[in-house]
Design a protein around this nucleic acid. Structure first.
Lengths: 112, 112
DNA sequence: CAGTCATATGCCCATATGAGTATATACGTG
DNA sequence: CACGTATATACTCATATGGGCATATGACTG
């Protein structure tokens, strides 16, 4: 299984997801909006589909793609531990200074 | 400039960031905790440093690395538009059904 | 200042992947 | 059923990148 982050590393895939955030779209619609070749859109959609980011619905000749929340939720959860660095009233710099001051300032040896 | 998502695509880099979330660490400390060769840790740290995820402080022979919040904040902001899909009391499925019902159900032509 | 510890860097290779092109599949309509 | 539309897939190629290895750099210590 591919990591969700690896999937999001591709700019066009992020663009596709952003478009799908506002509504369900067909492949051709994505193609037009992103100015990408159809084959490229289809390939990215496949990757997104296999990673669970999107699912498709058949409507006549078209495939309508829509978001699935799970993988993005995982990403959101991964970020959780880091939020303390920029949320709350203590800003990041201050926090780092605190930590530095708290260190016992080791001096010798390979004390990792 | 490399996208923050591309940086986070690498599992070892995410592991490094997670370790740095709890406190400042030296390269050797990361090396030990992650069971990665030193050269590998250093290379990942370079990537993280150049992308602004971490910064280093010289302490005698060691380099102490610590987190910088900005790039992760950007990621967090990118996620913002998607949070409506899983937050609040309307769940994702319900929301999608709403959207589908709202569509005028197009029938003919290449009306993308 | 020789030796050792801590970290960084350069080089090479194997692999992964996005783009482009051509083609296949599937559906709808006259 | 022939044709156009909509989408998917197979193949090839160029490029990017992580790992391994050797080595370089820099700092502390006796």
């Amino acid at each position: 299984m591919e990591s969700s982050f690896a999937i999001l590393a591709e700019p066009n895939r992020r663009a596709i997801l952003s478009l799908l955030a506002s509504s369900e779209r067909s492949v051709g619609e994505l193609e037009d909006r992103l100015h990408l070749p159809q084959t490229s859109v289809s390939k990215h959609l496949r990757v997104l589909r296999e990673a669970g980011f999107v699912e498709s619905r058949v409507e006549a000749q078209r495939r309508m793609y829509r978001l699935r929340p799970e993988p993005l939720m995982e990403v959101d959860e991964w970020l959780a531990p880091f939020r303390r660095f920029w949320s709350g009233h203590v800003d990041a710099l201050e926090r780092h200074l605190e930590r530095m001051a708290a260190l016992p300032k080791p001096k010798k040896g390979k004390n990792r």
